[in-house]
Design a protein around this nucleic acid. Structure first.
Lengths: 212, 212
DNA sequence: CGGCGGATTGATAAGATTCAAATGGCGTGG
DNA sequence: CCACGCCATTTGAATCTTATCAATCCGCCG
């Protein structure tokens, strides 16, 4: 969907439905398959010991879901109604031994995920709460349908909070601030519009350099 | 060194020295090779725009250094005097097309790294500064020479701070507290000893459940 | 022996969390 | 179709952790 050639094209797979909120697999389960998101949004998360959880990533169409080749070390949930392509491990290994370029594609995909997670870590290390939300919204607005910067926010405040490493209340407050400031507008329901970040560079007036 | 069979055994490589502090490769450079640490300690980091940086990981003997298959999206530095095996990209692709199990090993290694980085993110999301240091010390004490829990701390306070996402001053304060509390002992120079975390479970006396 | 950079320590302030309460939206069932 | 109830979200106030700034100390290397 969109990509010229999808990762793992050529592998045997089975399409599966996952209604909103449903668990696709759970941390600790045997990894019997890997998945590719065909439609919708998937949330990857690690559950800590004290009920705390970290949302590692939100995945959209075309992205490969692979967190553990023997045992899943994270859980996957459908954020919206979702369709995933399930590729069993034996299909996967079969493909790899048959087609070296598939192995390469998979490595590239794994490296991309690693990079994303590392960037996520950079955000978690050093960003202020406000910068975190800005980072998230700008990332998201580049992903979805992105017609004229409008985008959907299918995930809950809690999901966002656990992704950004801040409290849900803080997320809420920052949303209000962003709207009040005019950086964010709510169009309807879950649909939002982010003020273009390529604001004219002559905007030297103090107050917000880029609202990050 | 230690592993039954090393990842990427069978690939052509060249051993290279990297004296303490030296850069092995830099973020943004073309990825001409991947590396395997043979001896010493390597630090992976991402440099942010404002001079801020995130230390993604510290790597020890046997671990594969791969952050970017076309362009390095992170930098690698020698924390101690280090020897790395340099495996050029063409050797790598050649190996993969020749030996599917090598591809599998590499995927497993990439997945392990991803898991580590995701765990790192969990720490960055939710842990208090004190829990971060505990997490770090316990991880490190399981890695190094680990004779009787004694271990080396080759990295600077600044490195640790950037790895844990806290200020160097905070790291310093927490070290003092851990030593005062008796959880950590300095043996000599960079050598430390961590109090066994398997403290008798009958230790119900309030004060420190596990000092995390 | 001197000097330089990393490490420590202290005081202060800012940011975010926490707890608690009120509000709102959404789906369900009447 | 509307009313109800539940759960997510919002809002407020107090608190606490940690960052920041600045000064000093220490260890190491030349």
């Amino acid at each position: 969907l969109g990509d010229q050639r999808r990762t793992l094209e050529g592998a045997r797979f089975r399409l599966m439905d996952a209604p909103k909120g449903e668990e696709i697999f759970h941390q600790g389960d045997d990894a019997e398959a890997i998945y590719r998101v065909e439609r919708g949004c998937v949330r990857l998360q690690i559950d800590g010991k004290d009920g705390q959880r970290e949302v590692i990533a939100f995945l959209f169409s075309g992205e490969v879901v692979c967190v553990g080749l023997e045992t899943h070390w994270a859980s996957a949930y459908a954020v919206t109604d979702t369709i995933v392509a399930r590729i069993s491990m034996c299909s996967l290994w079969e493909l790899i031994s048959r087609d070296a370029s598939a192995a390469r594609d998979l490595l590239v995909s794994a490296d991309k995920r690693l990079r994303d997670v590392a960037d996520h870590g950079l955000m978690l290390s050093r960003f202020t709460a406000r910068a975190r939300l800005a980072w998230f919204l700008q990332w998201l607005s580049g992903h979805d349908g992105h017609r004229l910067d409008a985008f959907d926010l299918p995930m809950t405040r809690r999901d966002i909070a656990d992704f950004l490493g801040i409290a849900p209340e803080t997320v809420s407050r920052l949303f209000r601030q962003a709207v009040d400031r005019g950086d964010l507008r709510r169009l309807s329901g879950k649909r939002y519009l982010l003020r273009s970040r390529e604001a004219p560079p002559e905007a030297d007036k103090p107050g917000h350099a880029c609202w990050t």
